[in-house]
C-alpha cells in the first residue's frame, strides 16, 4: 500500500500578528510548524502502513526551509519525503496549489502507484479546506472529507470504510480505492518516533523537485499566473471599544447576587423594568 501525505509548513498562528499600520501579516521571526491537522493525517497514514505494509511518502510545496518540516515527518516514521520547490509556484492560490500537488502525486504514482492520499482538513493560515478536494478532483480519486477515523482498508477488495463527522452526527462511509482523505483534528495522537527514525531523519536527504520533475510542462496553471484569487485587503478586526463592566456587590447568596445584577441592569435600562412590570 502506498500512501502520499500532503503537509504544509505554516507560521505558528498563535504567534502571528497583523501590523497595525500597514495591515500586512508580520511573519518575521514567527516560528514555523507543521500544520497541526496534517499531523493527524500523517499518524493515520503511518498506522495503516504499519497494519498493511507498504510505504508513506510525504510531500509539500513550499520554500527550501520546508525541508525541516519534511525531516520531522521522517523522524515520526514516514519512509520518504519530496519537496516541491520552484520559482514558478510562487504566489499560488488554492487552485494552483492543488494543480501542482496533483501533478506531483501523479508523477510519484508512475513509479509506485498511489492507493491513498491524505490531507489535513484545512490549514491554520489559509483556512480554505480547498486543496484536498482540488487534488482528488484532478486525480479522479474518491474523496472523503472531515474524516475522524479510518475504520478499515481492505486492499484485496480495494475498499475503505471511514467515520466522517457531519453536522447531524457521524456518517460511516465506504468507497473504493484509490481515494483521498482529509482528516479532522483530535482523531489520534502522533507517535513518539524511535531512535532509528530520528537517526534516519537526521541523515535523510530530502528530494527537491522543480516543475519539470513533477511532470509539469506548461506552467500557465502554476503560481501567480494560475491563481485567479486576488487578495484585495488584509486587516485586523478592531478591538471592541465596549469594556466589560464589573458589578460590585457585598451580597453572598445567589439571591443577593441576582438582585444586584437586576438592579444594575434596570438602572441602565429603566424602560425595560417598566415593560416587564406591565
Amino acid at each position: 500500500m502506498h500512501i502520499v501525505v500532503c503537509i504544509k509548513q505554516v507560521p505558528d498562528s498563535a504567534q502571528i500578528r497583523v501590523h497595525p499600520v500597514t495591515n500586512t501579516i508580520m511573519r518575521q521571526g514567527v516560528p514555523t510548524i507543521i500544520n497541526p491537522y496534517d499531523l493527524f493525517s500523517l499518524e493515520e497514514a503511518l498506522r495503516l502502513r504499519d497494519q498493511l505494509g507498504g510505504k508513506v511518502t510525504v510531500i509539500t510545496m513550499g520554500p527550501k526551509m520546508a525541508i525541516e518540516a519534511l525531516k520531522k515527518c521522517i523522524s515520526y516514521g514516514a519512509d520518504d519525503a519530496i519537496l516541491l520547490t520552484d520559482k514558478v509556484f510562487a504566489g499560488s492560490d488554492t487552485l494552483a496549489t492543488s494543480f501542482a500537488l496533483a501533478s506531483t502525486i501523479a508523477k510519484i504514482g508512475e513509479t509506485t502507484p498511489v492507493d491513498m492520499v491524505f490531507c489535513g482538513k484545512q490549514t491554520i493560515d489559509g483556512d480554505t479546506a480547498q486543496v484536498g478536494p482540488g487534488i482528488a478532483r484532478r486525480l479522479h480519486m474518491q474523496q472523503l472529507t472531515y474524516v475522524a477515523q479510518v475504520e478499515k482498508v481492505d486492499l484485496d477488495k480495494g475498499e475503505i470504510v471511514v467515520h466522517r463527522r457531519s453536522e447531524g452526527g457521524v456518517q460511516v462511509l465506504a468507497t473504493k480505492l484509490p481515494c483521498l482523505v482529509t482528516m479532522l483534528e483530535g482523531s489520534n495522537v502522533m507517535r513518539y518516533g524511535s531512535m532509528d527514525d530520528l537517526f534516519r531523519a537526521a541523515r535523510y536527504e530530502v528530494a527537491e523537485w522543480d516543475h519539470k520533475a513533477a511532470g509539469i510542462t506548461v506552467t500557465a496553471q502554476c503560481g501567480l499566473k494560475g491563481s485567479p484569487t486576488v487578495v484585495k485587503k488584509v486587516f485586523a478586526p478592531p478591538a471592541r471599544a465596549v469594556k466589560a463592566e464589573m458589578i460590585k456587590t457585598e451580597g453572598k447568596t445567589p439571591r443577593e447576587v441576582a438582585d444586584a445584577l437586576l438592579t444594575s441592569v434596570f438602572a441602565k435600562h429603566p424602560k425595560l423594568e417598566m415593560e416587564i412590570g406591565q
Binding site: Y192, G193, S194, M195, D196, L198
Partner: peptide
C-alpha cells in the same frame, strides 16, 4: 540510554 524506543547508544 535515551527515552526513545531502541535508544541505547
Amino acid at each position: 540510554r535515551t527515552d526513545r524506543l531502541g535508544g541505547d547508544i
